[in-house]
Design a binder for these strands. Structure first.
Lengths: 198, 198
DNA sequence: CTCTAAGTTTGGAGTTACTATAAATACCAG
DNA sequence: CTGGTATTTATAGTAACTCCAAACTTAGAG
């Protein structure tokens, strides 16, 4: 479907190029300091074309090829395990199988994310979608609809703790966000006791 | 200090006027369709002055006189009760004591909020602050610091479920968000069981 | 190969949020 | 009333986006 005509291949290449150059510039100079024109110039397209591919500057940063991987790792586990644990294991699996470059990119990207108010903002717009996705994962197990109240609420809690765990990056950009996310889910899995080891 | 000179009184009045007119216009015409110039004109100030009072268009919508009330209602309860329940009761108390106009305004504002991507975005920027505030409420009870991991994680979960419960407004603008928020906390208080009554 | 239909890129003109700055105006204290 | 200070305002500028029509590129039919 999204197969190989010259047209499609070209589009994919352009899209990838925009993303690559944009991320490079954002990490190099900062998000605000990089203009659409800078990006367009680096990719050798016109600024107009940028908007053919992405609706906004924020949108470029947003897109994680990780989600599908995590979902797959989630599905791969025995279905009778606590879904929070499954999610936790899934995330760990995915993160530990990244190449160093991938991991480094993700870390820097997340850091950029949390330190740029506009990007943090854009994240919440994704919150809705993420709740849907997580709800879908959870729903399957209990044989309920993904729009079931309890399922969605649980999904909200999952994202809430993950988000909260990312906040440490705002103060301490060198914090290990992967470990933080894992601890957050571990704590949630344990029922969020206020007495907690570490 | 912020006492009575003509100057101070005028500033307060201007600020209030901006907020009132801006909200009126947003609700009347929509957020995007209202320009800063529209607001300035309605308040009879210059556009420049708008920015003396609010750093951005979004900032006008954002300011809830409710937070302090909820905190007060929270403090007013016996300190040995489960903090989630306390928060829940606090919110219920505050909401049920609003005048009909206040309640209507809040409902419409929340609705505006959830239906406008830019505003939803701005909300997450507040997420950080809210985690702090909720963490502070929770911390007191267990005699831990508000920057304690478990406390902050719990705060994240609280906000996560509240946020998720607000998402229904995106599909169904007439949903009762107060009831939704209450159910969300009720469910969290019960330990987020996936088997759930309603 | 050629011609046409359709998709894609581009430039240009316009809108709006927001910043910086310096001039004008309103308040206040002596 | 006068001079210093806070506040408002106009002006000019930047950058993200939108709209649109013109130029160009590819796909496919004949």
């Amino acid at each position: 479907m999204t197969a190989s005509g010259l047209r499609e291949r070209k589009k994919l290449r352009t899209r990838a190029a925009i993303q690559k150059e944009a991320m490079r510039l954002f990490l190099e100079k900062g998000f605000d300091e990089t203009t659409i024109e800078d990006i367009a110039e680096a990719v050798e397209i016109s600024p107009s074309t940028f908007f053919n591919y992405f609706p906004s500057k924020e949108a470029v940063v947003f897109q994680d090829d990780l989600d599908p991987l995590i979902i797959k790792a989630f599905e791969a586990q025995p279905h009778d395990v606590n879904p929070i644990r499954r999610l936790r294991v899934a995330m760990r699996t995915v993160f530990s199988n990244l190449t160093p470059e991938q991991e480094s990119l993700i870390r820097r990207r997340t850091q950029l994310f949390m330190s740029t108010p506009e990007l943090r903002g854009a994240m919440l717009s994704q919150f809705a979608d993420l709740v849907d996705q997580v709800a879908e994962l959870l729903a399957e197990r209990v044989g309920k609809s993904k729009s079931d109240f309890a399922v969605r609420n649980m999904a909200g809690a999952v994202l809430g703790v993950l988000l909260a765990s990312m906040l440490v990056l705002m103060r301490d950009p060198k914090a290990d966000m992967i470990k933080a996310a894992d601890s957050a889910l571990e704590h949630l899995e344990a029922g969020l006791p206020l007495e907690w080891k570490e």
